[in-house]
């Protein structure tokens, strides 16, 4: 009574159905095609090996895949930064990149995060986006907004709590 597919066929279908979105995420975070391709491959190797974890963790399937992809891309970005010390280069790259998320046409449910982010000061919602999509650390953010590290952390934690309040309204 189940889908009569071999694992590999199912895996191939899963790849065909989701790889374009996940590759888009890799490109957005890494801004580098070769790195994005390697990351996408790494993600699907993890999917193949970790699928049994998925079932137990209660995530919706696309969230699980996108989160895995984003985390893998951020890890790669961070290791690249560690080699490249010059964080400013990476920032310049991401500043120059278009921000397609700005033109997102989302359903009302999906708008909720955006609406709640918009309730924060622009700098503060921007910091959350930068951490999520650009892998900025507290150090990066403190430098960008020109505030001490501890202040940055206090800001961001407060923003997260405000955001959470709004999201659970």
């Amino acid at each position: 009574m189940r889908v009569s597919l071999g694992d590999r066929e199912a895996f191939s279908l899963l790849y065909d159905a989701t790889s374009a979105k996940l590759f888009g995420v890799c490109l957005r975070v890494l801004n580098d095609r070769a790195e994005a391709e390697d990351t996408l491959q790494e993600v699907f190797v993890k999917v193949w090996h970790k699928a049994d974890q998925y079932k137990a963790n209660g995530y919706s399937p696309m969230t699980w895949l996108i989160t895995l992809t984003r985390n893998t891309a951020i890890d790669r970005l961070r290791s690249k930064k560690a080699v490249n010390v010059d964080i400013a280069d990476v920032h310049d790259l991401s500043d120059a990149a278009p921000t397609p998320e700005a033109d997102a046409i989302a359903s009302s449910e999906r708008q909720r995060l955006n609406n709640c982010l918009n309730e924060l000061d622009a700098d503060r919602s921007d910091a959350v986006r930068r951490a999520y999509l650009d892998g900025d650390s507290y150090k990066d953010l403190a430098a960008r907004y020109d505030v001490p590290l501890n202040t940055m952390r206090t800001w961001l934690r407060r923003s997260l709590l405000t955001l959470k309040d709004c999201l659970s309204r």
């Binding site: 790889s19 590759f23 994005a36 996108i66 984003r70 995060l113």
Partner: peptide, 18 residues
């Protein structure tokens, strides 16, 4: 948090990988 913040990727257009 993962379920909420993943919406930040909504506007990212799919790009078919080679």
């Amino acid at each position: 948090w993962d379920e909420s913040l993943v919406d930040l990727t909504d506007g990212i257009s799919p790009v078919p990988p080679p």
